[in-house]
Design a protein around this nucleic acid. Structure first.
Length: 424
RNA sequence: GGAGAGGUGGCAGAGUGGUCGAAUGCGGCGGUCUCGAAAACCGUUGUCCGGGGUAACUCGGAUCGAGAGUUCAAAUCUCUCCCUCUCCGCCA
């Protein structure tokens, strides 16, 4: 969330930022509330100061074996006055907190203003494969090769749940092992294997709650949520902690299953593997010093891109415009891979700098060598990368005229040297 | 799931109603000593909110797992919840 003090001191800047993100928030109402709250606090603190002084007097009287009755009697009135005012402050605190939790992050200055149409392609890599035949979609390929059983996935859990089979499952497993190996041995990330079920506090810190409640699976009996991304548990590793300046930056990577209800998205890009309720993803998360978080974003993006380069999958990088940014992000790059069968660019990674937006919600601060708190860290994360759409790109781009799929060279060592997926 | 014990500052750990924001130890920071370091010694050392000040700072409030209650007064008493540990049960 945003710092209330920052909003108070820079209302216009915040208004502009929110407008750029295409959200309307009653900032003036919030500032009004804040002002009334502070005025009330001054009044209450004065009363409390009086009360504390009187209590000290009472203690002294008792010690000196004198009768404190009259002082005690006079204190009852002040105590009652405080009791009457305090609930008002509490109510205001809650209101302010709820408003703050619902206000999105504001875009960084380098982010282009506008909606989806203002997204900028800032880089691209690789060439779309040239086929002498009409390339099949991954759905046809997967069914022909019998490596994904779409029908039975649906039987087990409903539409858009996937059952990988045989070589399909093996290819999936090779993919996430490959990604984890690259990030841990070449990019300096520490591997984590976190819970995929988390509590509401964790979901609130990273920004999924309260706004995205409808998009998540919720376990009512235990009031726990299935994670939509490993960003949630991994960022929350340091919730309510004060990190040491010299241990920054921290780089974590995690492979987890992710769960998304995708409520309201039916009928749109829901064929095959494009948009499914449960999928696997390798995530990259950074905790960094605020002074260089934007350099860290660039290197994070590079780490994610490298996966596609090693897999020889063509991609392009989009810098998202202000109106297309997610709730918590200040700046975000999407990596889209080209899929020859669908003839589409598919978002397979999203790399964002949240600045101190998540850190403030989750109370993740850092201290200098002198032990003094220096502020909130900046958090970043990016997919490194999402499996299903990478799978789509591999199946569709690596297909052969005879209906097989070549295994990308980088994956072969993880698949016992297997070079192609062929019907059995 | 049942029974018991417990959650206090960066860490360890005292404190069972009245100058307790909290002894003591460790750690951190500054200093003395030293060519330098270690040891020893001295000093210092939480966070949040609000008022005042350009500022160093200063004043007030809050904070002993979370929330509610009793009281003039709560780390200390009562209730609810969360978490940790030990034993038993169940189980991959």
């Amino acid at each position: 969330m945003l710092d209330l003090k920052f909003i108070r001191e820079n209302p216009q800047k915040v208004k502009d930022g929110l407008a750029a993100k295409r959200v309307s928030v009653d900032l003036d109402g919030l500032l009004q509330l804040d002002l009334r709250r502070r005025q009330l606090i001054v009044k209450i603190d004065e009363l409390k100061a009086k009360k504390n002084a009187a209590n000290n007097d009472i203690s002294r009287l008792i010690k000196d074996k004198q009768d404190p009755k009259s002082t005690i009697a006079s204190m009852k009135g002040i105590a009652a006055e405080i009791d009457a005012l305090e609930p008002q402050v509490k109510l205001m605190d809650e209101q302010i907190q709820n408003i703050l939790l619902a206000i999105p992050n504001i875009p960084h200055d380098s982010v282009p203003r506008g909606g989806v149409e203002a997204n900028q392609v800032i880089a691209s890599w690789g060439e779309a494969p040239a086929f002498a035949f009409k390339p099949k979609t991954h759905i046809e390929i997967a069914e022909d090769l019998d490596i994904i059983d779409f029908k039975r996935g649906t039987k087990l859990s409903g539409s858009n749940f996937i059952l990988y089979k045989g070589q399909g499952a093996r290819l999936e497993r090779a993919l996430y092992n490959f990604m984890l190996e690259v990030h841990t041995t070449q990019h300096g990330y520490v591997e984590m294997s976190p819970p995929v079920v988390v509590n509401a506090a964790s979901m609130t810190a990273t920004g999924q709650l309260p706004k995205m409640k409808e998009d998540m699976y919720h376990l009512q009996a235990d009031d726990l949520y299935l994670i939509p991304t490993a960003e949630v548990p991994v960022t929350n590793i340091h919730r309510d902690e004060m990190l040491n300046e010299e241990e920054l930056p921290l780089y974590y990577t995690a492979y987890t299953t992710c769960f998304r209800r995708e409520a309201g998205s039916y009928g749109k890009d829901t064929r095959g593997l494009v948009r499914i309720h449960q999928f696997d993803k390798v995530e990259l998360v950074k905790f960094v010093d605020p002074s260089n978080s934007y350099q860290e974003l660039e290197s994070l993006l590079g780490n994610a891109c490298r996966i596609f380069e090693l897999l020889k999958i063509p991609y392009r990088v989009l810098m998202l415009a202000s109106g297309d940014l997610s709730f918590a992000a200040a700046k975000c790059y999407d990596i889209e891979v080209y899929a020859a069968g669908l003839d589409k660019w598919l978002e397979a990674s999203s790399c964002s700098n949240f600045e101190d937006f998540q850190a403030r919600r989750g109370n993740i601060s850092y201290k200098g060598k002198d032990g003094k708190k220096k502020g909130f860290v900046h958090t970043l994360n990016g997919s490194g990368v999402a499996l299903p759409r990478t799978m789509i790109a591999i199946l569709e781009n690596y297909q052969t005229p005879d209906g097989d799929v070549l295994v990308p060279e980088a994956l072969r060592p993880l698949m016992g040297g297997q070079e192609r997926i062929t019907h059995r």
